[in-house]
Write a protein that binds this DNA or RNA. Structure first.
Length: 462
RNA sequence: GUGGGUGUAGCUCAGUUGGCAGAGCACCGGGUUGUGGCCCCGGUUGUCGAGGGUUCAAAUCCCUUCACUCACCCCA
């Protein structure tokens, strides 16, 4: 007695049947088309890295890293949670050698697509394995790079047929300035840096919990003194209120924010960068309605150092961020000790797929790549059926020969219909005698009798 | 980590105050067999998530546990 293994699948990991696979493949092709138009070169990095590569010095960010348990390696391994960290590792490992002409010549723009892994508890639109399609520009601090990234985000969403979305833009430098303005400094054994991160995390919740709750959380004194709560004074909270209450169009917001941050250099620098990005976007004809300065956007990953971007679907805000990124000038430093400016973004392909699916914006009608199926009606004619199939394949028609067990017409006919195949080739005793075939279009229900000699030209015209 | 929900046939699920374990799909056999997803007849399919308790009797009530799932948190 064999043991039955249940056909179970771990939560947060997806199967893709043909209809879904083909629809997602279409998405990936459209995304890649836009990315290539900006000159991003394709590369690939492995599904497994050293844990220390991904986690860095602090294991803080590593809380949702997918660890690998059994391995013959002494050094612990793990699965990448994004493509950016392996990219930084790749940059550090391949410096350009002018003499040998090897390594990576900077500045460099590269794209990468593949699964990434997070050990979160899965939920709808949140997976433990999902595809990210990433672009990054390394080796330049120019805001042209950041503007190109935002332009690419806009064009990609458009290419995917999405109309209602918003790219929210902010700058970590502005938020760092805010921390100074709010008087955040080292406290006991907690660094100002960690407290600032916690402040950003709270700000990021603005659209969910509202300004009053945000200010309340910012002023809260934690029970655990080790917790990096901002614990702001009422006075500081008021400054944050006026910061979060800034309204107007993008230019006005930047102007008003500038007044608020009078004398805070780091924030002024951040605002200057944002305004430069907006200017470049204008040159690239990116409509202003799609790009919005939002000072509450912080981004969860702590390697960002400058502009940050986040895309949300206006019709499906519940799915959260689908296409996000930012500038990370210090990530390569982890591996080389020296900063290397870089900026980029990443589309959460599977989450966007789920969201568009939810909105009914995906065409999942295609169930198969087969264009023609040859029916096998006569028992002794398999060689001729195979010949016809080869004839069609030679001219680039995806052709399958019926593998349905019985040679009844109805069984094979219904099989072709249920598989969603467009054409069937019918060739029985009658046709063999006349050296013709019947070609039936199952979509239009029209049938034509074609002589065997004309079969190729018939399909080439189609 | 916190709070809901669900576990019954290969799949989707029904199962009444506790009283023989069910349907559809799928699958197998037979009939039909050259034009639209059939149709007709027959058949197989169960550790009712697991363990314990109450009871003459538990899928059903109670306790424990596990798995899955949704929401919060966080993120793509």
């Amino acid at each position: 007695m064999e043991t039955i293994v249940k056909p179970e699948r771990p939560g947060g990991f997806l199967d893709f049947l043909p209809a879904d696979y083909l629809a997602r493949e279409d998405m990936l092709k459209k995304i890649e088309g836009v990315y290539r138009s900006f000159g991003f070169d394709p590369i690939e990095t492995p599904r497994i890295e050293f844990l220390k590569t991904l986690a860095g010095e602090t294991s803080d960010t590593g809380k949702n890293i997918f660890h690998i348990k059994s391995s013959q390696d002494d050094e612990p391994l793990a699965m990448p949670f994004d493509h950016t960290v392996p990219f930084a590792r790749l940059l550090a490992a391949n410096p350009y050698d002018a003499k040998k002409r090897t390594g990576i010549r900077l500045p460099w723009r590269r794209m990468v697509v593949g699964p990434v892994f997070r050990s979160d508890t899965p939920q709808s639109g949140r997976y433990r394995q999902f595809y990210q399609f990433d672009v990054d520009i390394a080796g330049t601090a120019s805001m042209i790079a950041d503007a190109e990234i935002v332009a690419l985000m806009y064009l990609t969403m458009k290419a995917l047929g999405v109309e209602n979305f918003r790219i929210k833009v902010n700058n970590r430098k502005v938020l760092n300035g805010l921390a100074m303005l709010a008087g955040i400094r080292n406290r006991d054994r907690i660094s100002a840096d960690d407290i600032t991160k916690e402040m950003m995390r709270i700000l990021d919740k603005l659209d969910k919990i509202g300004i009053d709750q945000v200010l309340k959380e910012l002023q809260a004194i934690p029970e655990n003194p080790e917790f990096p709560a901002p614990g702001l004074t009422a006075e500081a909270a008021e400054k944050i209120r006026s910061f979060l209450s800034l309204r107007g169009d993008n230019i006005q917001k930047i102007g008003r924010c500038g007044e608020l941050f009078h004398g805070v250099n780091i924030a002024q620098e951040g605002l200057e960068e944002l305004s430069r990005i907006l200017n470049y976007l204008r040159s690239m004809d990116i409509p202003e309605a799609y790009v919005e300065i939002d000072f509450s956007i912080a981004r969860g990953l702590d390697y960002y150092t400058g502009p940050v971007f986040e895309t949300v679907l206006s019709d499906a805000p519940g799915f959260g961020s689908v296409f996000s990124g930012g500038r990370y000038n210090d990530l390569v430093k982890r591996f080389t000790g020296k900063s290397l400016p870089a900026t980029g973004t990443s589309i959460g392909v599977d989450r966007l797929f789920a969201a568009l699916s939810h909105l009914g914006l995906l065409d999942k009608s295609r169930q198969t790549v087969t264009e023609v199926m040859i029916l096998r009606l006569e028992k002794d004619r398999d060689h001729q059926y195979l010949e016809i199939a080869s004839q069609l394949r030679r001219i680039g028609i995806n052709t399958e020969i019926s593998m349905v067990e019985d040679n009844s017409f109805k069984g094979q006919f219904n099989y072709a219909i249920s598989r969603g195949i467009k054409f069937i080739v019918i060739c029985g005793a009658l046709e063999f005698e006349k050296e013709t075939v019947q070609v039936k279009n199952l979509e239009t229900r029209k049938q034509e009798e074609i002589s065997r000699a004309d079969l190729e030209t018939y399909f080439i015209k189609k």
